[in-house]
């Protein structure tokens, strides 16, 4: 919205800046749809002028969490709906991901470790790094199974100095 000449400036300085409108998208689970959702997220976050490394961290965690939905929650069930919701608050970027696939193993977020003894190239595994990355970069990770729905929530501590609200 274009500012009225001479009117916007004082208010901008004196009032705490509200966060941007949240970002929401829904799509049918697939690797390409995840890429498109991440492009939408990147377009949403770009105008905030966050550091490239902060933005990259958020994009990476979102990619891992959404890829898990595609590869695990919907692995045998066939592709289903995925909902992604992102908003900024005092704690940084809050993320909610909802799907209707199978529940997480044991109804909880997997623990993640880099296995010992995999440091020789022969032993090196080709997968299983996703949750390790999520646990490293995200905070307050929550998971709930309600009815046929999985809801994963977490926070990424970026942009906290920009958005007070």
């Amino acid at each position: 919205m274009p500012a009225e000449p001479g009117m916007g400036r004082v208010a901008t300085v004196s009032a705490p800046r509200p966060g941007p409108d949240p970002f929401s998208t829904e799509f049918t689970a697939s690797a390409l749809a995840v890429r498109q959702a991440l492009t939408g997220f990147a377009d949403w976050i770009a105008p905030l002028d966050l550091d490239e490394v902060e933005t990259g961290a958020a994009e990476l965690v979102l990619a891992e969490a959404l890829n898990n939905v595609v590869e695990h929650a919907y692995r045998d069930a066939g592709a289903g709906p995925v909902m992604l919701h992102c908003s900024f608050g005092q704690g940084g970027l809050s993320v909610l991901i909802r799907d209707r696939g199978v529940p997480m193993p044991s109804m909880r977020v997997p623990l993640a470790d880099l296995a010992d003894g995999q440091r020789s190239p022969v032993d090196l595994r080709e997968g299983g790094y996703g949750w390790f990355i999520i646990r490293d970069l995200a905070r307050d990770i929550g998971y709930e199974r309600r009815g046929a729905e999985n809801t994963l929530t977490f926070r990424i501590a970026i942009g906290r100095t920009l958005w007070a609200g």
Binding site: E59, L60, A63, N67, L124, E126, G130, I133
Partner: peptide, 16 residues
């Protein structure tokens, strides 16, 4: 500009 754990796994797979 961007790689995720699947891309990382692909590089590991090629190396192996």
């Amino acid at each position: 500009a961007f790689i995720d754990s699947s891309g990382l796994g692909a590089i590991v797979s090629v190396m192996k």
